[in-house]
């Protein structure tokens, strides 16, 4: 388990003069769940997009399984097949049913035969508890269900790493639980995950490591216990205080008790 599956070296992203993040170094071991927290506008989402090459970084390297994926000759489409991505606003393909959403990548990208793809897509839907919604279109599903289908769609590609970009931020409060539950299960199954979220309860419970990103650089990283109860940095302390204030005190109270 000590072999890193994903290594980020000195990664920098700028939009013109505006530096989104600078000199990010991060190493993710197989099976780890890393939660990235930080104020909005500090480049958390951009970092995830750089990792699966939806956005090109300006400097630095990203390595996936001993292969650099940021090289000029790298085939981005190949790389993305191995990195699953879940978006804040689900982004299911609106004209396809839940099953077709999950199946499309299998038939068109992995060129699996239709029968196998159908079976595999159904299994992935079962994994997120939505086998009975296979024939529903995104417009017929709740936000929580849509996000679970989106997770199944990403999982179907058998990715090495799953990236979650604020997967519950667009959900009504009562729908957040079902999505977090699926993610918790994935983490337990040993999926390697990078999660940007403001769900501190999830972070504390599921994360192997929490990374606090602010103003484009990593301020502090460590175990949930270290960051929540013994933050070394004043800014980490302030941010966590603010966010627990905002998202409900019960998290810290329970933790302290």
């Amino acid at each position: 388990m000590s072999q890193p599956i994903l290594t980020i070296k000195n990664l920098t992203k700028k939009y013109g003069e505006n530096v989104v993040f600078h000199d990010i170094n991060l190493s993710v071991n197989e099976g780890d769940t890393i939660v990235i927290i930080g104020p909005s506008g500090t480049g958390k989402s951009t970092l995830l997009r750089c990792i699966n090459l939806l956005t090109r970084s300006d400097a630095g390297e990203i390595w996936l399984d001993d292969k650099e994926i940021t090289c000029k000759e790298c085939d981005e489409d190949k790389v993305r097949q191995h990195i699953g991505m879940v978006f804040q606003n689900f982004l299911l393909f609106n004209h396809l049913t839940a099953l077709e959403n999950v199946r499309l990548g299998l038939t068109r990208v992995k060129h699996m035969n239709p029968a196998d793809a159908q079976l595999k897509a159904m299994q992935e839907l079962e994994r997120v508890g939505l086998q009975d919604r296979a024939g529903h279109y995104p417009g017929q599903l709740s936000g929580g269900q849509q996000q679970r289908v989106a997770i199944a769609r990403a999982l179907a590609m058998d990715p090495r790493v799953m990236l979650f970009d604020e997967p519950t931020s667009a959900l009504d409060p009562e729908l957040i639980g079902e999505v977090l539950e699926v993610m918790r299960k994935l983490a337990l199954e040993g999926m390697t995950m990078l999660v940007v979220t403001h769900e501190m309860g999830f972070a504390r419970e599921v994360a192997d490591r929490i990374v606090f990103l602010e103003k484009g650089s990593i301020v502090e990283e460590g175990s949930p216990n270290d960051l929540f109860y013994h933050p070394k940095n004043e800014r980490t302390r302030e941010f966590l205080w603010k966010i627990t204030e905002l998202y409900g005190k019960k998290d810290t109270e329970q933790g302290n008790g």
Partner: peptide, 21 residues
């Protein structure tokens, strides 16, 4: 929405496939 293209690219489709499907 532009997100549809992004989601298609995220599962490993190339631009042509994303446009087509």
């Amino acid at each position: 929405s532009g997100g549809q293209m992004m989601a298609a690219r995220a599962i490993g489709m190339n631009k042509i496939q994303a446009i087509r499907y």
